[in-house]
């Protein structure tokens, strides 16, 4: 199998400075030497607590953030320095209500992002229709996004993330805040993407969802990988994935509110 995502000893530090006269520097290690690979056609999960380093990892993989050190390659290219060769072939969806122009309609949002992906109208116009059908927004396609519910905005985000027909889709907590129907719809879409041969890397807090969808996963804690493998391998002798997860990240730590 071909590895389409590769992270090797990947690190990312954030430097913050405080004070005016006596400036103090603080270095936070958000990602601290993680290594994993994702094969083409896999659904791969990145699990962990808030602040574990999942979003930072996704940002490095999607060319939004420079790694401090280590290897970060997508489709055989470095995400920092060779991003131009990657960007048209991937896309990403961040959870929550961000990432759409609220004063535009769903159709206008998709048209604009199609332009940003340098697609031709004869390619994107029929695709927009299909995507709106897929995310059940066809009947509200010409209403402004600001009139949508949270779930509808997230569905619009999904359509936006698929506008360039990406080989790899990165999803950062895509079901956060979605109602059960919306979350089910999203899981069905992710499964369909896999059937189409696409690779999906997703982060989630929702362990049953990860277990249901992911072929393989890693659990990240404080910037480091603490376990990796298929859901069954990670579960091991524990009764559930949740129990295995709690034993790996520490029950006390897992119970800490975000």
């Amino acid at each position: 199998m071909e590895a389409v995502i590769e992270a090797k000893d990947l690190r990312r530090e954030y430097v913050t400075r405080r004070g005016v006269l006596r400036r103090t520097k603080r270095v936070v290690k958000a990602v601290d030497g993680i290594s994993f690979h994702v094969e083409r056609g896999e659904i791969f999960g990145l699990l962990g607590q808030n602040g574990a380093g999942k979003t930072t990892t996704i940002k490095m993989l999607t060319t939004l953030l420079a790694p401090t050190s280590g290897v970060c390659r997508v489709l055989g290219r470095n995400t920092f320095g060779e991003e131009k060769q990657i960007r048209s072939r991937i896309n990403f969806i961040f959870g929550g209500e961000f990432g759409v122009y609220r004063r535009l309609s769903a159709r206008d949002n998709l048209r604009y992002f199609a332009h940003l992906y340098l697609l031709e109208p004869e390619v994107f116009e029929p695709r927009i229709g299909q995507l709106l059908e897929m995310v059940s927004l066809a009947d509200r396609a010409d209403d402004l996004a600001e009139t949508y519910s949270k779930g509808m905005i997230q569905r619009l985000q999904i359509a936006r993330g698929l506008i360039n027909d990406p080989e790899i889709l990165f999803m950062d907590e895509p079901t956060v805040g979605l109602d059960p129907v919306g979350a089910r719809m999203l899981r069905d879409i992710i499964r369909r993407l896999k059937e189409d041969g696409r690779t999906v890397l997703l982060t989630t807090h929702y362990l049953p969802e990860a277990e249901e969808l992911c072929d393989r996963m890693v659990i990240v804690n404080a910037g480091k990988i603490v376990a990796g493998g298929t859901p069954a391998e990670i579960r091991g002798s524990h009764e559930s994935l949740e129990e295995a997860y709690l034993s790996l990240v520490g029950a006390g730590e897992a119970a800490t509110p975000a």
């Binding site: 939004l64 131009k84 961040f94 961000f98 990432g99 609220r102 332009h115 940003l116 992906y117």
Partner: peptide, 18 residues
């Protein structure tokens, strides 16, 4: 703040042109 700056930045269209 809308989360779209990252999206237009990571799109294939050159950021400066957008």
């Amino acid at each position: 703040y809308m989360g779209t700056l990252a999206l237009i930045f990571a799109a294939p269209a050159p950021f400066r042109k957008t």
